[in-house]
Amino acid sequence: MSYILQTNHLTKIIDGKELVTDVNIHVKKGEIYGFLGPNGAGKTTVMKMITNLWKPTKGTVELFGKTLETTSYEVLKRMGSIIEFPTFYEHMSGKDNLQLHCEYMGYYNKGSIDEVLEMLNLREAANKPVKSYSLGMKQRLGIARAILCKPELVVLDEPTNGLDPAGMKQLRDLFKMLCSEYGITLIISSHLLSEIESIADTIGVINHGKMMREISMKEISEMNTAYIELAVTDTKKAAYVLAEKMELNNFKIIDDSKIRIYEVNVTTQEISKELMFNGVEIISINKHTETLEDYFLKMTAEVGK
């Protein structure tokens, strides 16, 4: 399979310290790739190498099938990005900053600036100096600049920083629209798992500078196990009822009060009825499904062992 973005054994060492080690990323054309990791995991370091801000100590970056070099100017024109916090000419208006970016990129489409200002809800602030913008407005202006020249690939480092829940929802919808309607590929880093879970097609998990795993959200959904968690006053008696009376065998006693039942063809109502009929006092009974957060925490816990 060919990838729009691929890194090969990417390693960065500064002052004798390995910030990231042997990182391999594979991003398919037209997808949203969620790059997940706790703060300090190495996400920004990798993104700086992808966007040619930092040179790898070892390994290579391939963009659009070509190895990234110091002089890969034409390749980089096909990409938009925000790395860490976006910076602007603070005394200039938001619109003028975008106009300057178009000049710099050699992109001349007069309607594009108004279009992205509308997309990012910045029309009213377009002619105000950027120094008057809030953190969230600057973040939105940075995203406007990243998508302004209709790039094929957009690299966004923690793009929801400084945004309130409504702003985050707006960006989620925007990212999905850019992918589905414009065919733009996005790689988005975040430690906000719920944000990535709702939009990503594929995730890559990085921790302590090492890539843990790449996996599609579809695969996570298929392998996540739904279970019923049961809290009772007497686990031994409850286990007896589950095994002997209900003939269930796929369950596990978690501690002195909790049992997890992994049977797919039994309901909470059936379990409650049988336990109460046999004199087992139920404290609580709930159905659970593992989320991306559960998967992420398991992955990052493994590397710390």
Rank of each mutant, 00 (worst) to 15 (best):
Y262A: 03
I282K: 03
Q269K: 13
I283K: 14
V266K: 08
I259D: 00
S284G: 11
K273C: 10
K252F: 07
T267V: 09
D255H: 11
N265L: 07
F277R: 08
E274W: 06
S284R: 10
Y295E: 06
R260N: 14
L292C: 08
L275C: 05
T289D: 08
I254Y: 08
V264W: 06
G279C: 09
N286G: 00
F251Y: 14
Q269I: 12
D294F: 03
N278I: 03
L275Y: 01
E263N: 14
T268R: 12
H288Q: 07
V280M: 03
I253E: 05
Y295A: 05
E270I: 04
S272M: 09
Y295H: 08
N286P: 00
N286F: 01
T291R: 02
S272N: 12
D256R: 13
I259R: 00
R260P: 00
H288N: 06
E270C: 07
K258R: 15
I282V: 09
V280H: 02
R260E: 10
N265I: 01
D294L: 05
T268I: 15
E281M: 12
L297G: 05
S272I: 01
S284I: 04
E281F: 12
E290Q: 14
S257N: 13
E281I: 14
V264Q: 14
I283P: 04
E270H: 09
T291D: 05
N278K: 10
V280K: 01
Q269G: 11
I261Q: 00
T268S: 13
K258E: 03
K252W: 05
N286K: 02
K258W: 02
K252A: 07
E293K: 13
I283F: 11
E293A: 11
T268G: 13
F296E: 00
L292V: 06
E270P: 02
G279E: 11
I271C: 02
N265M: 06
N286H: 02
I282N: 02
G279T: 06
I261N: 01
S272D: 02
L292F: 08
S272T: 15
T268A: 14
I282P: 00
Y262G: 04
N278E: 11
I259H: 02
T267A: 12
V266H: 09
E290T: 04
H288Y: 15
L275M: 12
I253W: 01
I253Q: 10
K287I: 08
I254M: 13
F251E: 01
S257H: 15
K273H: 12
S272C: 11
Q269W: 06
I271A: 01
L292W: 04
D255F: 07
I259F: 02
F277E: 10
S284F: 07
K287F: 08
V264F: 09
L275E: 03
D294W: 01
L297A: 06
T291F: 03
V266Q: 09
G279L: 07
E274R: 11
E270V: 05
T291P: 00
Y262Q: 00
I283V: 14
V280D: 01
T267S: 15
D255C: 08
N250K: 15
S284Q: 13
G279F: 07
S257P: 06
Y295N: 04
I253A: 04
V280I: 13
K287E: 13
Y295P: 00
I283H: 10
T268C: 15
K252M: 09
T267G: 10
